[in-house]
Amino acid sequence: MVFKKRRVKLEDIARKLNISIATVSRALDKNPRVKKSTQEKVFKTAEEMGYMPNQIAKSLSSGKTNIIGVLIPRYDEPFFIEVCRGIDQYARNHNYKILISSSRNSYQFEKENLISFERGLVDGIILSPTHETENVAHLNDLTSKGMPMVLFDNIREEVSGADHVMIDDIKSSFDAVEFLIKKGRKKIAFIGGIKQKKVFQDRFTGYKSALNKYKIPLNEELVLHCNSLDREFEDREILDFFKHLTTTPDAVFTCTDNYGLLAMKTLLKTEKKIPEEVAVIGFGDLGLGEVFVPTLTCVSQPSFEMGQKAAELLIKQLNEPEDILHKKTVVKLETKLTQREST
């Protein structure tokens, strides 16, 4: 017969040491009211008995879990991985842990995840909204209830009470395309993601603005908005895009590193010389561009720093007095163009 092991509780430790439950609780919290020798006994006994603290139960008395909820649209995007690394490093240095969940690019899943976070699991939330998030009422509702929140990346509409961390996507794209134009490129293709996503809209705006400044007509045939949210199908979309072009581009500006690498892979398969015949620029600079041959020129986005700044702003909110009205902070981080062999 198999018996289920019962979870060790504070009273079990107290009974074994013949001290009060309150003393055990204070000792585990390293309360200075408890002697060092008693603290050491409690910690040793707790470890021997296999005690695991119940974080949620503990939060009922303290009002805090010291956990930050992080909600991202997808797990397989290097940009979000880097942002989460930045959040985690800053949070751990300030005695917080992070709980990461994915909305899977679904507005409905985004709302469901936020409801779970709201039910006492986290002290605050760092969120990148999905491309489907056109209505931010659910976010405004959370901040109006006092939930500290920081938004980053795909911010379609400002949320009252939430801090924002972003880059200037329009200017970053404009600068990259202007760089290509100044190198003599006139037939510049654009490869972006799903049209509804604000960051891709802004990067397309920057692309068009650069063409307009230099009086280069927009050729719709050279524009691809990938509809797929899966890497395998993105590859196929980009392959089909180049296969059916009647105008051969002399440069390609892409909205992510992944699109840039897929574009180069396709061009090299068709024996195009990079950058002699076609120059390519990616967006993100998350490490992959340096290992590809030729190496990829990128708009370098400070993804890790974005995560650190988001965590810093959230923890600052968490430490504010409850009777003080939070003053919104909007941070815009700088990007730069990192030139490599593809241009």
Rank of each mutant, 00 (worst) to 15 (best):
S128M: 11
K30E: 07
Y259M: 10
C298I: 08
M264H: 05
E271K: 15
I72R: 02
Y259V: 03
V42Y: 05
A210Y: 15
K183E: 11
E305A: 04
L318Y: 10
K186W: 13
K41I: 07
C84S: 12
E305F: 02
T343D: 08
I115K: 12
S101C: 09
H138S: 06
C255D: 03
L333G: 09
G282W: 06
E40A: 14
L267R: 14
P53N: 09
A189Q: 04
T248P: 00
K187G: 00
L245S: 10
F79D: 05
V278T: 06
F179Q: 02
S173R: 05
I315T: 12
F174W: 11
I56F: 04
M166A: 11
I155K: 06
L229R: 08
G124R: 08
E341Y: 01
R104I: 09
V330P: 00
D168H: 06
I19D: 01
D169Q: 01
H225Y: 13
N219F: 12
I155T: 09
K171F: 09
D285R: 11
K5Y: 05
D240K: 15
F80S: 09
V278E: 06
I125W: 11
K182D: 08
K58V: 05
P73A: 04
E290L: 14
G86Y: 09
T205P: 00
S62L: 08
K5C: 02
S128P: 00
V2A: 02
E40W: 04
Q55L: 13
C84V: 15
A162F: 11
S342Q: 07
L314R: 01
D257I: 12
M166G: 02
D240Q: 15
Y90R: 02
I181K: 01
N113L: 14
F174K: 08
M306N: 06
L224H: 07
K213V: 00
R156V: 07
L28F: 10
S116E: 00
P321S: 08
D230Q: 05
N113M: 14
V330I: 15
M149T: 02
N95D: 10
R85H: 06
A210F: 14
L114E: 02
A189N: 04
N18Q: 07
L229F: 07
T143W: 01
N66D: 07
G120N: 09
P321C: 08
K97Q: 04
E47V: 04
K64V: 12
N135M: 05
I191M: 09
E112N: 10
E118Y: 09
G120M: 09
F233A: 10
F283C: 03
I281S: 03
V199Q: 14
L245A: 13
I238H: 03
A263P: 07
K5P: 01
V293K: 07
E118F: 10
V177E: 07
M49E: 03
N154M: 05
V2Q: 02
C84L: 15
T297K: 00
E118W: 08
H225C: 07
V291L: 07
P321W: 15
E322L: 15
A210C: 07
N140K: 02
Y259N: 08
I281V: 03
Y90M: 10
D285S: 03
Y75M: 13
I167N: 00
R7T: 13
N18R: 13
N18V: 04
E277K: 04
G282A: 04
K186F: 12
K198L: 14
V177G: 03
E312S: 10
D240H: 15
L127D: 03
